[in-house]
Amino acid sequence: MSTLKGRVWTFGRDVDTDLIIAARYLNMKTPEELAAHVMEDADPEFASKVRPGDILVGKENFGCGSSREHAPMALKGAGIPVVIAKSFARIFYRNAFNTGLAILVAPEAVDGIREGDQIEVDLASGQIRNLTTGAEYQAEPLPEFMRALVAAGGCCRI
């Protein structure tokens, strides 16, 4: 269960929560509604291109900006199981785990993975394999209680 395999979409640094889900859609609050507009201001086609199981790779400070839990909800709603980045903004980090979206800090992996690569992620060990290039990377392993949160699908579902 903790191994995920998927196709990669890459983004730059400082991906903010307005990019992940624009405020004009915050009059909605279900993952399904929000997923229809995920990453829209970064790439208007993204919601139609992304498939369940796809993985997001960002650079530094992913998820900066507002405290909207709608951001991890929109990503999860689009079927994205994990986001990998060099660093995450603080509130997004909390919210991701609280809503059951896995996130991994793995700077080398971010540098070595390109858009469209197929990768395999072991959440338990933090191992990331790039199936396209064969390269392997180690992410900071998730603390046990955070893995439990993700497995349960979020804080309030334990």
């Binding site: 900006g65 507002s66 405290s67 839990e69 919210n95 804080c155 309030c156």
Partner: peptide
């Protein structure tokens, strides 16, 4: 506060920080 600009109240000599909705529920 479930709003990132909750940090505003630090101006009063308080510790104030933004969290998400689930943290607010708790």
């Amino acid at each position: 506060g479930a709003d990132s600009h909750t940090c505003t109240y630090g101006a009063l000599g308080a510790f104030a920080t933004g969290v998400g909705s689930t943290d607010l529920a708790g």
